[in-house]
Design a protein around this nucleic acid. Structure first.
Lengths: 209, 209, 209, 209
DNA sequence: CATGAATGAGTGTTCATTCAT
DNA sequence: TATGAATGAACACTCATTCAT
């Protein structure tokens, strides 16, 4: 599905406000005002507030998927390095699309199964498949240890990144970075998380041959 | 502050409903109906819906704090074992009070700084202090590696547990546990998370002497 | 079901406005303003605008039923006189409850079968049964002609009265009664319709012995 | 006024939808969708929704007028036979244009005097004049009784037909014709109403010389 | 000549809260 | 102390209509 410019403006505004005040906490009027459009446009373009939320997810869903297909075929880099690339991709995605990922994390916790929780579920399943494939390859080659639970590993990666990014205030205050400009903080945290997570999984994943 | 029975009934119902449908998604009438009390009681007892939310947090805040004071003075167990106990405490808290922790996770992501975000922040700071104290002791004794970021470690522990517990469906489906009764699942996931997290941090934290 | 005073005020106002501007043409706000109550009261007391409409009908439904039970057992008056009493009852009801009957006539034409069309249907069936009973008794005694279609007779009585009452302007203008006060007009039309309908059915119904 | 094909398509669709869901219950979008045209066309062609309604009536108004001019001059048929022809014409019109007549009946009940109520009023006045002319001729020749109220007679004819046709369900159910195809029902009811009404007025109108 | 895009006003309904008792 | 009744504000959404093209 393709969105025109006005629709994209609405989607981006909605993404932002939903991530800040939540779906229920954001009124269609808030979105309309912030986006500088008429209230009726939301219904006009998307049908309903819920459908707008779905549009937000549809628009960003691709960015939730980590892409490893090409990687896996590249024989030049080791399995561990491939895994590192996956970590970097997760970190990159969360850091560069903080608003959307905050929104996604929130929505993921929703108990009532909506269209959106289904979309998230699906992407997670796909990501799981990709990572599992890599892990299994690494195990077959003897590089990786057996008996690793990929679901838990995913939980650690997304959980850790999400914690740091989404409740940023805590990290910033404890690291004396309260007033660090967004750009610089993002750069810093990207590097920090990447290194940390790689370190975490290095010994955990590698076969102590 | 002490709450009478009726107030506690309201608090518990609110805790549950807030965690399911969110703060904005839960109406005072929903809470009143579920708790079997009059709508006006919420305002009457707590002043406002927001104040009720604060009461929910005030009531559970203690449970958010990990207690390590006694542990630290116990010379019979090693630093690593002490750290393991902290992990178990986090896991226990999240598993046994899933509703509240889901609520807390959501609220933590709120950008608008409320009374509640402040409460969460404070507790996290205290927990950080406790853990940091232990880590530093371990480093001093040479047991633990230097240069570990305790904030990141906390993020990993809470992030991982939160991911698994709060979007339980994904874990259950990928582990063929869709219909496992709550009790059994809790027992399983407690053990699983505990072992996993200890494994993660074992090599990471220990000094390769 | 019983209604309190405020509910009755709303019902009466709704009855009036619905009869003038129709269900869709009347807004809940119109009713609230006219009744001097808050908009929210309609939902509060009746649940919805539709339910309010049903309440209007529930409240007046008894008045739609013609009562013949006692009459039928009275041996002092002839079958024809009993039928005349029925005519008078119809005329009386329509004249004294013009607003409600206009509303009913309109609603009766609704194609989409609602709760209300069902209610009307039911009352009409009961009225039909009552009249049929009388007609059959008259036929058995030889007073009434055979082969009369009671449904058509009902249609003539209600149709004629409804036409005259509900599009009153035409009758008034053609009879030079444009400015006749309501009270007097009602008195006049009651007598007029009564006489006219009795005349119509006299020769039609009576057996030319 | 003449309407082009597209305008006629809109008029016919509007006539149908207005008769089913009423004027306020039918949205311009409904009409546009059903007619397969653009929403803006209604305003474009007719100026407004109300004007469209007027166009519907303007288009059908001729069919509301009964035509007796030629009849009256025909000396070959009796006055009573002429009156019978008028009855048949009313019945025919109502049966063959049920949608429009349902719409008209509803609109006739509108209290707020609109352009449309005026149109209806005018036609009724003309019809009244035609019938009155015939009745007076019949009275002059001694065929008809004196002291008949033509307005009431019109009310009986239109009222009876309207009741039967517009709340068809009642008639069908009480006559075991629930599933009778439209065509056959129309044929049946046409004959039935014609015979019935003629019977009604036969003795009522004729001078018992 | 025709239309997709856009709008402000208005819809029924729900909301957290207040108030008289 | 406790509550049913009541309210004004806000909600998501639909409406008939306008306008640039």
């Amino acid at each position: 599905m393709e969105f025109n410019e006005k629709q994209l403006a609405i989607i981006h505004t909605a993404e932002k406000l939903f991530s800040i005040t939540g779906f229920d906490g954001t009124s269609v009027r808030d979105i309309a005002n912030e986006a500088g459009i008429n209230v009726a446009m939301v219904s006009y373009y998307f049908g309903s507030k819920e459908k707008l939320m779905e549009a937000v997810f549809e628009h960003r869903t691709n960015q939730m998927r980590i892409k490893v297909e090409n990687m896996l075929q590249n024989d030049a880099i080791s399995h561990l390095e491939k895994f590192y690339l996956i970590i970097d991709e997760y970190v990159d995605k969360f850091v560069s699309r903080q608003e959307f990922h905050k929104l996604m994390m929130r929505e993921q916790f929703n108990e009532k199964g909506t269209q959106i929780t289904d979309m998230i579920h699906e992407v997670k399943l796909k990501n799981l498949a990709s990572i599992t494939k890599l892990i299994k390859a690494g195990q077959k080659s003897g590089d990786f240890a057996k008996n690793v639970d990929v679901v838990l590993m995913m939980a650690t990666i997304t959980g850790t990144v999400s914690q740091v990014i989404n409740s940023q205030r805590f990290y910033r205050e404890t690291h004396n970075m309260t007033d660090l400009p967004t750009e610089e903080f993002n750069k810093h945290i990207r590097k920090k998380l990447s290194t940390y997570l790689k370190n975490i999984f290095k010994t955990f994943l590698i076969n102590e041959a």
